[in-house]
């Protein structure tokens, strides 16, 4: 009797079919991509010894004593990330009001601003620095501008979405009170959006600490540039020390921003 019980599915049969199809499509895409790039997942396993030899013999032990200028370069990188995030967030703060549907005074302007944001965001900071290095030469200002441009694009979108989420209800109430445009921004939109602003700002600091290192490697200055110099002159022990120092700083910054997030966003 028991084994004759009818099986009652919990999901509609069509949905189940879709999931199965999606799985096989993904599998096919993975296989095709692997074949195209001629990537053999077993290479890593087979040639592990080469990799570990390189790590243990060339990189380890890290030689921090010989890493001249490491900490001043590290400060430059940190400064670059902080300054870029700060400048970008100030700009995005202003332009987000013009870009968000809830606060945009002119719809045509909001479209232009969103387009500019999308353009600057979708070209990575790495590419921006390549362009800028060609124009201005190597230096931290190049890294700073590259990071600012990309962060501006990203924060503009994030801030616009934050404002969109504020919702029209409280704005409607302020309209009914006879408040004007700037009063509405100051008394309703900004207070409601502040948690979003802070959270995205902190996120961008974390991201920019990492990308300012990479931007530095292609000529944006800071610790990335120092690392690149040591790698290119085959001083791997020093490079190893720098890499570990970067990791330590990144972890430290992440811990700090996490702590801030818990503190500020109640």
């Amino acid at each position: 009797m028991a084994d004759k019980q009818k099986h009652l599915p919990l999901v509609d049969g069509g949905e189940k079919k879709m999931v199965t199809i999606a799985f096989f499509v993904m599998l096919a895409l993975f296989t095709a991509a692997t074949a195209y790039t001629q990537f053999n997942p077993f290479t890593i396993l087979k040639e592990q010894s080469t990799f570990w030899n390189f790590i243990t013999q060339d990189f380890l032990p890290p030689d921090i004593a010989k890493a001249k200028g490491l900490w001043s370069a590290m400060l430059q990188t940190l400064g670059m990330a902080l300054a870029a995030t700060f400048i970008a967030s100030c700009l995005a703060f202003v332009f987000a009001f013009l870009g968000s549907g809830t606060t945009a005074p002119y719809p045509w302007l909001s479209k232009i601003i969103r387009a500019v944001g999308s353009f600057t965001r979708n070209i990575p900071a790495l590419v921006w620095s390549f362009i800028l290095v060609m124009a201005f030469g190597i230096g931290t200002s190049v890294g700073l501008i590259a990071l600012t441009v990309e962060t501006f694009g990203f924060l503009l979108r994030a801030f616009i979405e934050t404002i969109d989420e504020v919702g029209s209800e409280s704005l409607e109430a302020l309209n009914a009170c006879g408040a004007d445009y700037f009063q509405k921004l100051a008394q309703c939109v900004i207070p409601a959006a502040i948690p979003g602003y802070i959270s995205w700002f902190l996120y961008c600091i974390e991201v920019n600490i990492r990308s300012s290192t990479i931007v530095g490697m292609v000529g944006g200055g800071g610790v990335g540039l120092v690392l690149m110099i040591y790698i290119k002159s085959f001083k791997y022990h020093v490079a190893g020390a720098i890499i570990l120092a970067i990791a330590a700083v990144v972890i430290l910054v992440d811990l700090t921003t996490n702590w801030l997030r818990k503190r500020v966003l109640v």
């Binding site: 302020l174 009170c177 006879g178 408040a179 700037f182 009063q183 309703c188 502040i194």
Partner: peptide, 22 residues
């Protein structure tokens, strides 16, 4: 339709905005 991040007092005072300069 209150601004929930603000205090009761701040919300109540919004009623005066129409009478004030920007």
């Amino acid at each position: 339709n209150l601004v929930y991040r603000l205090t009761v007092m701040q919300n109540v005072m919004h009623g005066r905005l129409g009478y004030m300069s920007t």
